[in-house]
Design a protein around this nucleic acid. Structure first.
Length: 571
RNA sequence: GCACCUGUAGCUCAGUUGGAUAGAGUGUCAGCCUCCGAAGCUGAAGGUCAUGCGUUCGAAUCGCAUCAGGUGCGCCA
């Protein structure tokens, strides 16, 4: 498709006073497909030639000689519309898919690495529903970057350090819970969640406990043996449940590097800051002033000498650059933390790290749920209105299972399939809109099989698979008659398949999985339409149509995979 | 108060680098299974693109201002 834009730009440049580059810039793909595949607006030429754009378009249409692949050029309302030869396009697109298979539309390896920091939950807490966003946006971006030729380092930057652990330790000891290794191994994240709740409760009547927690963390930082043992047990209990959930979601990481890992790398960072005269005492705190950038100061060290979130992020960024020599480092973290990242990136810049400009915060909006008055609001962990991720997944699975029992009770391995559909529905609901938009979560809409949903996309793939299963053979490309797949629905499907490369590239450039999610919907819709309007098996055009079904299946399957949904074959 | 995000059909959202008559889904209404999965397809109705001014041959898109909703701002992460 790209080569055709250049070709057409060349045709125009040949007959009009405009460079190929400029002509290519002006060339658009019309929204209305009845206006052709490519359209050239003649208005800027009109200004240059001081001539009516309608007239220019008409003259150009007369003069241009069409090369192979183009069927028609037409002047309309000052636009020059180019129509491709349908059979030509069909052969060009489908043969390339047949050759490249699932890698169709991918870019070659580029020997550049990208670090993607995503999911990164806090230890000691259960995953809430909203953690799905970072996890699945990051997961999809990882796959998208790989498809664009990058080496991706998936990093789970666990929140395993900080005052929160002081709170847990204080509460654990206060409640006289067992300290033997055997007992600690049995700890579950559920119990830790309860400790947080009792801490918050206690803090209401006894605010000094907050100070105790801070002291406990300082003691942990200083290496107290008992505190370290408890900390390790808390972390392990959380990781156990975390791994279980990632397994269900189909997510994996290359590195689990918690904040605690950077503990011994922090003194060097602080020394560095001092050397560069960036560290300043302010109200007993060590900070870096950023007022010239109109940012509040970045807090580096608390009054008791212990470290903060930003300090550890500085150390982590430096470590990642040294270890991975990344081209880019993405932080898939909610929008609410954009100030924090601005500060951290700016401090690194002031430390003279030129690569600080390669650090990118990839923000996303909140998950909102509707309250009794119908107002959209954020679930709050503290008040317990936030749903736990495991509960949401379980409820989704059950709902899908009920549906399968009703519609397709003989399906094999129903429970597994229901989980895969349920998870995919939740994930698709998270990815289908632009990252920055808040997700207004509606159970019925998300799990519906109709409309812009995961199941709708999966169902299109299932139908394609079903036809191929029944055909029970693979079409040889030499048996395809291209002019048998040029009706409107086939042509729309082929054009859609041909846009895969462009969509993968755009999704990568914008760090925006929703571009690919919308594309998956386009393919699914075109596929549903095609197989509804064209009988495949038993028709005189069977081989040609089946070849299209094969290639559509390949493209849809890979697109689904890049989003992190399950490409199921039966449902 | 300051900073950031959002505002497009009743609801949830797309809208490419500024291009032609602003598009989907959902809901409402009306149709299509002797036929590869109806978990699907086809049609109708539904719009002051928050508002105003500006730039341009041309603005939902770019600039400025205003309004509305949301989020964040020193010892949490």
């Amino acid at each position: 498709m790209n080569s055709f834009e250049s070709l057409i730009a060349g045709l125009i440049a040949d007959k009009a006073p405009i460079t190929i580059e400029d002509a290519r810039q002006l060339l658009v793909v019309p929204q209305d497909s009845s206006h052709g595949n490519f359209s050239f607006p003649c208005f800027s030429l009109a200004k240059l030639l001081k001539k009516n754009p309608k007239l220019i378009a008409e003259e150009l249409a007369d003069q241009i000689i069409l090369p192979v692949g183009l069927a028609k050029v037409e002047a309309l309302n000052g636009y020059l519309n180019f129509y491709m030869d349908r059979a030509f396009l069909a052969s060009k697109v489908l043969l390339e898919i047949e050759e490249k298979k699932l890698n169709y539309g991918h870019a070659p390896q580029n020997n550049k690495s990208v670090v993607i920091d995503f999911s990164s939950p806090n230890m000691g807490k259960e995953l809430a529903f909203h953690h799905l966003r970072s996890t699945m946006i990051g997961n999809s971006l990882s796959k998208i970057y790989e498809a664009n030729g990058y080496k991706v380092e998936r990093v789970n930057h666990l929140g395993d350090w900080g005052t929160a652990f002081g709170k847990l330790i204080v509460m654990y000891l206060k409640e006289n819970l067992p300290l033997e290794d055997q007992e600690l191994e049995k700890l579950s994240v559920k119990e830790l969640n309860l400790l947080y709740a009792s801490f918050a409760n206690e803090a209401k009547s006894n605010p000094e406990i907050e100070e105790e927690a801070r002291k406990a963390f300082t003691r942990l930082e200083q290496g107290d043996a008992l505190y370290r043992k408890l900390w390790a047990a808390f972390k392990e209990a959380t990781l156990k449940e975390l791994r279980r959930l990632y397994q269900i979601l189909g997510v994996s990481f290359d590195h689990y590097v918690g904040e605690s890992f950077f503990e011994d790398k922090i003194p060097a960072v602080i020394e560095n800051l001092q050397q560069k005269k960036l560290l300043i005492k302010s109200q007993d705190l060590d900070v870096v002033m950023l007022e010239d950038k109109k940012l509040p100061p970045c807090l580096i060290r608390k009054s008791d000498g212990s470290t903060l979130y930003a300090t550890r992020d500085l150390a982590a960024a430096i470590y990642r650059k040294e270890t991975f020599d990344f081209e880019k480092c993405l932080y898939v973290v909610d929008l609410g933390q954009s100030l924090h990242f601005k500060q951290v990136f700016e401090v690194l810049k002031q430390m003279d790290y030129a690569w600080s400009q390669d650090l990118l915060h990839i923000p996303f909006g909140l998950i909102l749920q509707q309250n009794e008055e119908g107002k959209w609001e954020k679930g709050k962990t503290r008040t317990g209105t936030a749903s736990l991720l495991r509960d949401v997944i379980e409820a989704a699975t059950q709902k899908i299972l009920d549906f399968i029992e009703e519609k397709n009770p003989n399906l094999a391995d129903k429970k597994t399939v229901a989980t895969q559909i349920g998870v995919s529905a939740l994930v698709f609901n998270d990815l289908k809109n632009k990252r920055l938009m808040d997700v207004k979560f509606d159970w019925d809409a998300a799990l519906s099989f109709e409309g812009a949903t995961g199941p709708y996309v999966q169902n299109a793939l299932v139908r394609l698979y079903s036809i191929m299963r029944k055909a029970a053979y693979t079409v040889d490309k030499n048996d395809v008659q291209w002019d048998q797949i040029i009706d409107d629905t086939a042509y729309e499907l082929i054009k859609t398949l041909g846009r895969k490369e462009e969509n993968i590239r755009k999704a990568c450039e914008a760090n925006e999985p929703s571009i690919l999610a919308q594309y998956a919907l386009d393919i699914a819709e075109a596929a549903h339409r095609f197989i509804h309007h064209n009988r495949v098996l038993g028709s005189t055009e069977e081989q040609s149509r089946l070849f299209l079904v094969q290639q559509a299946q390949t493209v849809l399957e890979n697109t689904i995979e890049l989003l992190g949904l399950y490409p199921i074959q039966q449902m």
